[in-house]
């Protein structure tokens, strides 16, 4: 297709480009490198947005908006500042802020669990390369349940847990992304996991009521 004729280096660069190299190239040639940034970070930003918002369409809009804001910011920065940016934490912070605002705006308008949309074709979580359809459906059900559990976590804990365990950020990166001290972030991840564990226990208790008394 035509796009490969005009921007040939991207596919090649993607094989090898880590964030340091991306930042160096962005500083040198923002327009020529930005697509590589999007392709490198789109799955993680989208995943974070989906688990924070619980809605695939909202998540796509938030991830899209996050990249647009990132571009607009980078376009005003000088090269030195671009080279120093820690892309993973910075992009995560943009998504978390946009997701927080969207949830706040949407809070009064509709219930949080519009999760059926996650099951639309093409929107299921990655289910492994060779899963049978039933396995994929089970996987999608499980993913939805986990997203619902995350949705029942308090927002501050949810953001910390999602960045740590869905996105795989370090505590230092999460602290930077959320603008909170490392110690606070560690405690919030811990409390978030405890919240999820408590939910699991409660669910199991509800399934087997004879064991709860």
């Amino acid at each position: 297709m035509a796009r490969h004729a005009t921007i040939p280096p991207v596919a090649v660069l993607l094989e090898t480009m880590d964030d340091d190299e991306l930042a160096a190239r962005l500083a040198h040639d923002l327009d020529g490198t930005f697509e590589a940034l999007v392709l490198t970070h789109q799955d993680r930003l989208y995943s974070v947005a989906v688990r924070l918002l619980g809605d695939a369409r909202d998540a796509e809009e938030v991830a899209q908006d996050a990249f647009v804001r990132a571009y607009q910011a980078l376009a005003t920065w000088d090269a030195a500042r671009i080279r120093e940016v820690r892309l993973r934490a910075w992009l995560a912070s943009i998504v978390v802020n946009l997701a927080r605002n969207r949830r706040r705006n949407a809070a009064d308008l509709r219930p949080p669990a519009a999760l059926e949309r996650l099951l639309e074709p093409g929107l299921q979580p990655a289910a492994g390369p060779r899963q049978a359809p039933e396995a994929a459906a089970l996987h999608a059900d499980a993913a939805r349940e986990w997203t619902e559990r995350l949705g029942r976590c308090p927002a501050t804990l949810r953001a910390a847990v999602v960045l740590r365990h869905v996105d795989g950020l370090s505590y230092e990166e999460i602290a930077e992304a959320l603008g909170r001290p490392v110690g606070t972030v560690k405690a919030q991840v811990h409390r978030g996991l405890a919240n999820l564990r408590a939910q699991l226990e409660a669910e199991r208790g509800a399934e087997r009521p004879e064991l709860t008394t």
Partner: peptide, 29 residues
């Protein structure tokens, strides 16, 4: 209920971005 099991479940929640995302971003900027 070991933390590691919950963590493993959360790590499996990475979803590929819709194919429409990157083109929409590039058009917008």
């Amino acid at each position: 209920d070991a933390p590691s099991a919950i963590e493993a479940a959360l790590a499996g929640l990475v979803s590929p971005a819709p194919a429409t995302l990157a083109p929409a971003v590039l058009v917008e900027v």
